[in-house]
Write a protein that binds this DNA or RNA. Structure first.
Lengths: 209, 209
DNA sequence: CTGCAAACTTGCAGTGACTGCAAAAAAGTC
DNA sequence: GACTTTTTTGCAGTCACTGCAAGTTTGCAG
């Protein structure tokens, strides 16, 4: 019964996973991240506490909705671009594509996460701390594309810059409703691309930049 | 009795603080970070567990030796440079100065921390997660110097890039004994300064870069 | 549809980080 | 030496997280 690629089991697993994720985000946004216990989250999703930890290694991970496939997916994307695309561009496009997908799939969740992040900005950093494994994958992909050894600083810096861009962008996005998250991330990556030695122009009071 | 600027009390506090820090790092390097309990650390430093938590908010903080004065100190340095120094250079120099000082004061600790980080790279990221407050200070200083509003992406990105540079540099430093940490951080910051769109040259097997 | 194996869920008991509180012990002051 | 302010400590409690050993559900073959 897996011609559709997804058995009953798989479907149920996906369901509990997203139920837990949504419960976590919803409750955290509603009454503050650390006023919510895993027990409450599990109850909300109608599973046992132990099951929560079968799906997520930590409360943090559930909040951010850590997707174990995101790393491999992005790495593949990076390598799939035609040869004349620079490593930076490949990485940049890959990140933006991922964000677009994510927002299309769960924009509502990100709106709630925004509230949580506004209360506790450190959560975003902490959540990214656990993705060292994925980052390693991305760094390898970048290294391959750039013709550099894995030990080189550049690939790791580029990937770190990516998550920094994302984190800063979320903060900025949270503060200004009128912006699209993808655009802000793109802008941040551009600053990294152009070099931080170059201070970007800023027109006081003149939003046509 | 505080003409020397430091009373008995202050001296003792400093002593317990560094004793706890050293105990944490030493034990963690010796037998692995999570095979060490706070109870053991406290015992090693001859204080109670409760006292440990009077000095450090978490085990992570003790491992990294989080210095609450580092943020203000660096911010001050950034603002103190003459006016013709660019924001990037001011930040860069400030970071390198801090690292130099730190290594001069506690090089042995950093050598041990290196071992711990090699076992668990995520600890470094997590440790930096709690410094959101300091980062805000630095970002403000950079913003002031760059003539940008605090809400602008640039200052935050520069500061994030700084910690990314530091984290990547430590990793690289841990893997190659022959390098000086300060140099690697400087190199990383230079890559950020020049722009990541530019892939650095790499001479296969020719260390004259 | 039955019986078996693999995957998933659950409860339970335990560890360890971390907190608030109130009392003991120093340290500084006069 | 009494008095105030800090610092240390013990204690009780909460909560995240883990390993283990059932119990339950799903997949599959006969």
């Amino acid at each position: 019964m897996n011609q559709s690629g997804e058995s009953l089991r798989d479907r149920k697993k996906r369901q509990t996973r997203t139920a837990l994720e949504r419960a976590t985000v919803r409750l955290a946004a509603e009454r503050g991240y650390d006023n919510v216990t895993v027990e409450e989250i599990a109850a909300e999703a109608d599973v046992s506490v132990r099951t929560f930890f079968n799906y997520f290694a930590s409360k943090d991970e559930a909040l951010i909705g850590a997707d174990p496939e995101a790393g491999p997916r992005m790495a593949e994307r990076i390598l799939a671009f035609p040869g004349d695309v620079t490593p930076f561009d490949a990485y940049r496009r890959s990140v933006l594509a991922e964000i677009t997908d994510e927002l299309n799939n769960a924009r509502d969740l990100w709106l709630l996460r925004k509230d949580v992040v506004m209360q506790r900005p450190d959560l975003l950093v902490r959540a990214f701390a656990n993705s060292a494994e994925s980052e390693q994958l991305l760094a390898s992909a970048v290294a391959a594309r750039a013709g550099l050894p894995e030990s080189h600083l550049y690939p790791r810096l580029l990937v770190s810059a990516g998550s920094a861009a994302f984190r800063c962008a979320v903060t900025r996005w949270a503060a200004d409703d009128s912006l699209a998250l993808g655009d802000v991330v793109g802008e941040a990556l551009d600053l990294f691309g152009a070099g931080l030695a170059h201070v970007p122009p800023y027109h006081h009071e003149g939003g046509t930049s």
